[in-house]
């Protein structure tokens, strides 16, 4: 279900949100975080985002670059400024606040 593809989305020309999810192996927390992120992005940022998943167990050298301590950590690289959300992203409201996204009225 979770893959290390560079781009999860198929409309790269209008990317506004560049997100990076740092995980450490396929743990329950990692899987939950990815599923939560995917759901939130789909419902609020449809077509405007790109998610990059980095498994630190495979590429540990990347941890220092974004100052990763906790996993899972979601880093919003774009738009600036950089924001970080740690945890399994189970609280949708806080994720939206963290990413600075206004909830879309359904």
């Amino acid at each position: 279900m979770m893959e290390d593809t560079q781009s999860e989305q198929n409309c790269p020309e209008v990317v506004q949100y560049e997100l990076r999810l740092y995980v450490a192996g396929q743990t329950a927390k990692s899987l939950a975080a990815f599923a939560n992120l995917k759901r939130i992005c789909e419902s609020h940022l449809h077509g405007e985002y790109r998610i990059e998943v980095i498994d630190l167990i495979k590429t540990p050298q990347l941890a220092a670059g974004d100052q990763i301590l906790a996993v899972p950590t979601l880093v919003r690289r774009l738009p600036e400024p950089i924001k970080k959300i740690i945890g399994d992203l189970s609280n949708e409201e806080r994720v939206l606040v963290g990413l600075d996204i206004q909830p879309v009225e359904v």
Binding site: T73, K84, I85, I86, S90, V97
Partner: peptide, 12 residues
């Protein structure tokens, strides 16, 4: 810079 939602650890 850090927001916290849900469970995490310091595996990083």
């Amino acid at each position: 810079e850090i927001e916290e939602t849900g469970e995490y650890d310091l595996e990083g």
